[in-house]
C-alpha cells in the first residue's frame, strides 16, 4: 500500500486556501458590485431615514433615531450580502459545470464549506465594518460592548453565509436562487426591527414578531451598541447559535447524501 508523500494528513489546508483565495479574487474583480453598491444603498438609508425622516422622530430608548437604525442597517446588509455571496459562489460552479473538479478533489465537505463560507463571511464582515464606518459620518455613535458587537457580527455572517450556501446548492435555476432572499429574508429583515423597536408594535404583533429569527439578531446586535434590547441578549445569542447549528446539520446532510450535487 502506498501513501502520498506530499499529501498532508488530516486537513487539506491547500484546498481550503485555494477555494478561499478563489472566492476573494472574485470579489476583488467586481468591487463596484461587491463593495460600492452595498455602501451606497446603506448611505441612502441614512440620508432618507436617518437625516430626513429621523430628525422628525423622537428618540427610542433615549437613542437618537438616526443612530438607532445603524445596527439594524448593518444586520440587513450582513444578512442579504452573506446569502447573496455564498449562494452565488456555490451555485455558479453547479451552473457552469466546473463543480466536477470540487467533487473529484480529495476534500472533505467541511473543508469545502470552510473555504466558501469563510470567504463569504469575510466579505460580509468587511462590508459591515465599512458600513459602520460610513455611519459615523452621518450620526454620532457609541458602542457599549465592542467585543459582543464583533461576536454578533461574525456569528451572523457565518450563519447566513451557511444559509446562503444551502440555498445555492438547493437552487436549480436563477429564479430559485433569488426567491428565498427576496421573498423570505428581506421581509423578515425589514420586519425584524431594523427601523423600529418591536416594543412599538401592538401586543399581538409583538408576539408574532418573536417568531422572526431576525428579531433576535438585530436585538442582540443593537444591545451591543446601546445596551438596550428588545429581547434578552442571552436569548439572542442562543437563537443565533441554534440557527447556526441547524445550518451546519443541513450542509452535513447535503454532502453526505450528495443532494443536488451528485447522482
Amino acid at each position: 500500500m502506498k501513501t502520498l508523500d506530499t499529501s498532508p494528513p488530516g486537513i487539506n489546508w491547500p484546498a481550503i486556501a485555494a477555494i478561499y483565495r478563489f472566492e476573494m479574487a472574485r470579489t476583488l474583480r467586481t468591487p463596484l458590485q461587491s463593495v460600492v453598491s452595498p455602501v451606497l444603498s446603506t448611505s441612502l438609508y441614512f440620508v432618507v431615514f436617518g437625516a430626513a425622516i429621523g430628525s422628525r422622530m423622537q428618540a427610542i430608548d433615549d437613542v437618537q433615531y438616526g443612530a438607532f437604525i445603524v445596527p439594524g442597517l448593518i444586520m440587513l446588509t450582513l444578512l442579504t450580502q452573506s446569502i447573496a455571496n455564498a449562494s452565488f459562489a456555490i451555485y455558479f460552479p453547479k451552473f457552469t459545470g466546473t463543480i466536477y473538479e470540487l467533487l473529484s478533489a480529495p476534500v472533505a465537505w467541511w473543508e469545502v464549506v470552510i473555504g466558501y463560507v469563510g470567504a463569504a463571511a469575510t466579505k460580509s464582515i468587511v462590508l459591515g465594518l465599512i458600513i459602520l464606518l460610513t455611519a459615523t459620518f452621518f450620526v454620532p455613535l457609541r458602542i457599549a460592548h465592542p467585543g459582543f458587537m464583533l461576536m454578533f457580527l461574525v456569528l451572523t455572517a457565518i450563519t447566513f453565509s451557511l444559509f446562503g450556501f444551502i440555498i445555492g446548492i438547493w437552487a436549480d435555476g436563477f429564479e430559485k436562487l433569488q426567491v428565498i432572499p427576496l421573498l423570505v429574508v428581506t421581509p423578515l429583515a425589514f420586519l425584524g426591527g431594523s427601523f423600529y423597536s418591536i416594543e412599538m408594535l401592538p401586543p399581538l404583533w409583538r408576539t408574532v414578531a418573536l417568531f422572526n429569527p431576525v428579531v433576535y439578531l438585530i436585538s442582540g446586535f443593537r444591545w451591543s451598541f446601546f445596551g438596550k434590547a428588545d429581547v434578552g441578549v442571552a436569548v439572542s445569542l442562543g437563537m443565533t447559535l441554534v440557527f447556526l447549528a441547524g445550518c451546519i446539520a443541513a450542509v452535513a446532510w447535503i454532502f453526505r447524501t450528495g443532494y443536488r450535487l451528485k447522482n
Partner: peptide, 23 residues
C-alpha cells in the same frame, strides 16, 4: 467546462491546491 474570468495560471494553481498540493 472552465471558469471564465480566472487567468490560466490562476486556475491551474487553484487545481493544484484543491488536490492538497503546496504551491
Amino acid at each position: 467546462t472552465t471558469d471564465a474570468f480566472e487567468t490560466v495560471r490562476a486556475t491551474v494553481g487553484f487545481s493544484r491546491g484543491l488536490f492538497g498540493k503546496r504551491k
